[in-house]
């Protein structure tokens, strides 16, 4: 199959493409799903504040 000597290797090759297609389809279908709530936003801002402190300690 596809010039490979055995089907196990050919399936590894094919499944790599199928997994990519799964990622593309999932991304497109769920493109706008999962926007953040007000509470989520408030936590994000708190989290950012601390994150900047963490980064400030780096060289």
């Amino acid at each position: 199959m596809l010039g490979f000597a055995d089907s196990l290797t050919a399936w590894g090759y094919i499944l790599s493409f199928l997994a990519t297609i799964l990622c593309i389809v999932y991304g497109l279908v769920n493109w706008n799903k999962g926007t953040e709530s007000e509470e989520d936003y408030r936590r994000s801002v708190e989290w950012e504040r601390e994150e900047i402190e963490v980064e400030d300690r780096l060289p």
Binding site: I24, N30, K33, T35, E36, D40
Partner: peptide, 20 residues
């Protein structure tokens, strides 16, 4: 560091193609 789940969903698309 991601803002919301939608960003992660979209990143699945880009990431899948990138890793391939």
């Amino acid at each position: 560091t991601v803002k919301n789940d939608a960003s992660l969903n979209r990143a699945v698309l880009v990431g899948g193609i990138f890793i391939l």
